[in-house]
Write a protein that binds this DNA or RNA. Structure first.
Lengths: 162, 162
DNA sequence: TAAAAATAGTTGACTTTTCAACTATTTTCC
DNA sequence: GGAAAATAGTTGAAAAGTCAACTATTTTTA
């Protein structure tokens, strides 16, 4: 077998796992973990956002959103209100109890990000961010394509082997 | 509260989650998922590597390594042999049954990586990879520092409140 | 050399995330 | 208007990863 060079995917994996661990450690005093901080920030920045849109923004499964938001509600950081026009939709709101936590979340996130980019010049960082954004976007499209292909194969099997 | 701009951390999160989902889909026929592909490749590229070194290479918890390797052994893709000089150490070896899977793992990994970087010029990609490598390295150091600090606080509490 | 500390690995409980199947509501279209 | 399809969200099972406490060796050190 030939020689296979490493790819940047390994570093993405390490960065993501360590970022989660970091948030788990520093947010522990507030009863939340890495799994809630993103959603808390998004609800704060988009008052009244729906669960569906929350999932779309972060390319999350809708089940993930339901569970994260349930936890935030139990802790009293988020209020869930049904949309009056379309009662399928649930709209999310930050409570006053969440203000403290939000400050901490942003503060710790910025500390972490600044540690990582300490020695990167601003224009390089900007470039990096744009490349990552583009790749993240492609990954969502690509994944949908692969999933769709798989689904079609499953359907075909179901039709030919009933 | 002031306005808080987004960071690249969000894109890292999306990229990592979608990469895992992709590997889960394409490796399903071989009985393995995203959680084993990295370890399978590393054992192939470092015949006889120990679990400890495997953890260090990918900045994984040692418990993660134990479980991933156990699964690979159950599937017959990896052999675990105790080191003769130091019997704490377990050395890992690829079996012939794993050759097929390894081909597929590398092939699918490269397809995925190429989709993501399609429109990035090679020198930009090289630069991106170096930045990510550096940041991943910092994240490991930084995390150790935060963990150590936390431990000291816990120890202090234990000593003053017995 | 014996006790203490360090090292390698395992285990069980827990969190986060996903998938697939489900309910409930709204929209489409015959 | 009503059946069918689409949309929004929920749920339970499963995977991956982590932590903390554990066992079994090996190394350090007093």
């Amino acid at each position: 077998m030939k020689h296979y060079p490493a790819t940047f995917l390994k570093y993405i994996s390490i960065l993501q796992r360590n970022t989660s661990r970091y948030f788990d450690m520093v947010l522990e005093p507030f009863g939340i973990g890495s799994g809630q901080q993103f959603f808390l920030r998004q609800i704060y920045e988009n008052e009244g956002i729906s669960m569906y849109d929350l999932a779309k923004i972060g390319c999350f499964d809708k089940g993930t959103v339901t569970k994260a938001v349930q936890k935030l509600e139990e802790l009293g950081y988020v209020k869930i209100l049904a949309d009056e026009k379309d009662r399928r939709i649930k709209r999310l709101h930050i409570t006053s109890a969440a203000q403290q936590v939000l400050e901490k979340v942003y503060q710790k996130r910025d500390l972490w990000k600044n540690s990582l980019t300490e020695n990167i010049p601003p224009e390089k960082e900007k470039e990096l961010e744009q490349l990552l954004e583009k790749m993240a976007q492609i990954s969502c499209q690509e994944l949908s394509a692969v999933a769709k292909q798989r689904e079609e194969i499953h359907d075909k099997r179901r039709n030919t082997q009933p």
